[in-house]
Amino acid sequence: MLFQEVHGIPPQSDVDQVLVIGKFDGVHIGHQAILDTARNVAPPGTRLAVMSFNPHPTFVLTGDEAYLRTLTPPTEKLRILAELGVGSYYSIRFDKAFAAMDPEQFVVEFGTRLRARQIVVGEDFRFGRGGSGDTALLRTVGSRLGIGVTVVSPVVENGSKVSSSQIRAHLAAGRVEAAEALLGRPYTITGTVVHGGDCGRAIGFPTANLSGIDAYVMPKSGVYAVSAAVSERDKGEIVSHEEIWFGVLLAGGRTTISGDRFQLAVHLLGFSGDLYGKQCRVSFLRRIRDEQAFASAEELQAQLARDCDTTSAMVGLADVRLTGDLIRQGSAFVRTSFGKD
């Protein structure tokens, strides 16, 4: 778990820190490279800290409502950053007033308040009024304050800079494997299982319908092979070990004879039991097909059977339950452990 989590303007830090600043939407491999660099330049005895912003600055500055959804909502971002060894997390409320802050004031205010010994950012980092602050200004003001500044070059994959926008585009096109390559892990959405219409159960394919997922960027509608980590929670805390299953996920409108409300519903291969109220964290492994409309329940039933066969062939087993923390290995685990001939 994170040692310290602060929302809003943080208090004076009681320890020296290496401060990484950025949006960190997705905590993708480019962000991870920045964190790796921060660990490498950290003076002895300092704590690794991340300053991020909420809501997404692009939404505040442009009004683009697509950015009300994020690749990693706050809880998900905290979980990933904690796994990467971050000791302090500062979530700064980003609004028009904050966006208008003088860039030099920004460095002085947060550099001293957070006792930054080093500040580490990506080379395209911009800050302050109208984005007028850049890495050159950051170095100038940092030098005056006795703060070292390290600027990290972007990570490039297939000739393009890795970015959250690129990952969003992959998801919008259903390219979940491409998104995984840039994230360094499968794209994951966490929700709570709620009652649905029981249409799937009626034709022999019960599904877990996920609620509480509105903050996430949604993938293109369609049918996906997934892994799913299922656990019980009480007041936000996990009270049971995660059980990890493979499954078939339907994203979009109800894939029945009618209905068009976007949702995520997952059928777990080989599962029987009660999932209502449990937390389900689904990781997208591969897109199987487009969403379809069916003329009859029988046609839908036959297609879902084929989807399950496709997923079973991909993972190598039709009925598999795993326990532990293998979800973090995602499809890499599938391919290395179950994908061999």
Rank of each mutant, 00 (worst) to 15 (best):
G200D: 03
R113M: 06
V194C: 14
F246D: 01
A116W: 06
C308V: 09
Q118R: 12
T112L: 11
D64Q: 03
D95P: 00
V156W: 09
D124S: 03
D102W: 01
E83C: 15
A97R: 11
R289Y: 14
S258D: 13
Y187A: 02
E180I: 05
K23Q: 01
I327H: 08
T112Q: 07
L137Q: 08
S296C: 15
D260W: 10
L171G: 04
F338Y: 10
L71R: 02
H195N: 15
A297L: 15
D309Q: 15
T75V: 09
G316M: 07
V60Y: 00
G8I: 08
T311F: 06
V194A: 12
E232I: 00
E291V: 08
V155N: 02
G247S: 05
F125T: 03
L210G: 09
G8L: 07
R129V: 00
T188P: 05
T62G: 01
G174P: 05
S91I: 15
P55M: 04
H28P: 08
G316E: 04
I167R: 04
A229W: 03
T37W: 07
A100F: 07
A313T: 15
L285H: 02
E76Q: 11
A49K: 02
F106V: 04
A179F: 04
G133S: 11
E177I: 03
R126L: 02
Q329S: 13
I244M: 13
G26P: 14
L285S: 05
H170W: 13
T75H: 11
A172Q: 15
M1C: 12
R139H: 06
M314R: 06
V86H: 13
V320R: 15
L250P: 01
D64Y: 01
R93W: 08
A33V: 01
Q105R: 11
T188S: 09
K77C: 05
L145H: 12
V60N: 05
G26N: 09
T62D: 01
K23I: 00
F24P: 06
A265E: 03
V266L: 06
F110Q: 00
V162W: 04
L300M: 13
Y67H: 02
T112K: 04
T190Y: 01
R287N: 11
Y67D: 01
P43G: 07
A169Q: 11
N158T: 14
F127K: 01
L269T: 08
H241Q: 10
M1S: 06
G222C: 05
L268T: 13
M218N: 10
E76R: 10
E76N: 09
D234N: 14
F262W: 10
